[in-house]
């Protein structure tokens, strides 16, 4: 098990008028190579949770283990942790600062204390991974299109060679194609490099397409941590948390109510199509 949270609590602004229990007794394990979706409405504690994973926020109580080591143990190397658990913030393009794309991406690996050659090699590799072509390496990051900027920013994290990649709404504000491009790159990282992925998103359709397991946060509590399809079966509870299931889940459930012999498992368009056709065939 790669990441373990054991009864993690986080109380924000303790002792002030702003005090808030942002995380309540969070416990879970994430295995190497999993693709996890993290959903929850704004303010449910998602962002706080992911910032615990790479030590940017320290828990008020509870323990966190990464690769078997307690990250709060004395002398634990936080910088190392941050390189192993890469965190891509929302609108990551807002963190770009260098004069060229390449220099910006090399920033992370240089911070790790790698020698120049190794750092540059990693930066180059990372930019290839996100599909930035060579002719853009010397361009100013501020001249790129929105989608390109975002990919450069993601490369900036990938160049640290993380084992776990956390993305906080990586597709926010992008158009449908830009969104698919980013998610396809992420899937590739998951499949080819075997990276553990944690995807924070509002899109249930994306979650249904890509994620093995779904974490659902509500008011600082981790309500679900089950396989995606199981979670969507609880779509009525999700609605109470101001969330929803993919549209096809609703179609399947409504058909079932009307007496169709369909399973409500389907969450993607392809699954639903096959299931409806199968059901129609069997009704013949």
């Amino acid at each position: 098990m790669q990441i373990i949270f054991d009864k993690v609590n986080y109380i924000y602004g303790k002792g002030t008028a702003f005090e808030r229990h942002a995380l309540k007794d969070i416990s879970f394990c994430i295995n190497k190579g999993e693709f996890i979706g993290l959903i929850g409405h704004t303010g449910s504690g998602k962002s706080t949770l992911i910032q615990h994973m790479n030590g940017l926020i320290k828990a008020s109580s509870g323990s966190i283990y990464f690769n078997g080591e307690d990250i709060y143990a004395q002398g634990y190397n936080m910088k190392q942790l941050r390189s192993k658990v890469g965190l891509v913030f929302q609108y990551p393009e807002h963190q770009l600062f260098e004069t060229t794309v390449f220099k910006d991406v090399v920033f992370g690996p240089l911070n790790l204390g790698l020698d120049k050659l190794e750092a540059e090699l990693r930066a180059y590799e990372a930019l290839r991974m996100v599909g930035i072509s060579d002719d853009l390496l010397d361009a100013s990051p501020f001249e790129l299109s929105g989608g390109q900027k975002r990919r450069v920013a993601i490369a900036g994290v990938l160049a640290m060679k993380p084992e776990v990649l956390i993305l906080d709404e990586p597709t926010a504000g992008l158009d449908p194609r830009g969104r698919d491009d980013i998610l396809d790159q992420v899937t590739k990282l998951h499949e080819e490099a075997g990276m553990t992925i944690i995807l924070v998103t509002h899109s249930m359709e994306d979650v249904a397409c890509y994620c093995d397991r779904l974490f659902v946060m509500n008011n600082g509590e981790l309500v679900f941590q089950n396989p995606t399809k199981e979670v969507f079966a609880h779509y009525k509870e999700l609605e109470e948390m101001h969330l929803a299931a993919p549209q096809v889940t609703y179609v399947m459930n409504m058909l079932k109510e009307k007496g169709w012999n369909v399973s409500c498992d389907a969450t993607t368009v392809e699954e639903a199509r096959d299931e409806i056709i199968r059901a129609l065939g069997s009704m013949h």
Partner: peptide
């Protein structure tokens, strides 16, 4: 932004005055 750069290994807390001033650029 500070947190985002820290996630990329930036260090705002240690080092001499010059190093700290330089670390503020990102």
């Amino acid at each position: 932004i500070m947190k985002a750069q820290m996630a990329r290994g930036a260090d705002f807390e240690t080092g001499g005055l010059l190093k700290r001033a330089k670390s503020l650029i990102p």
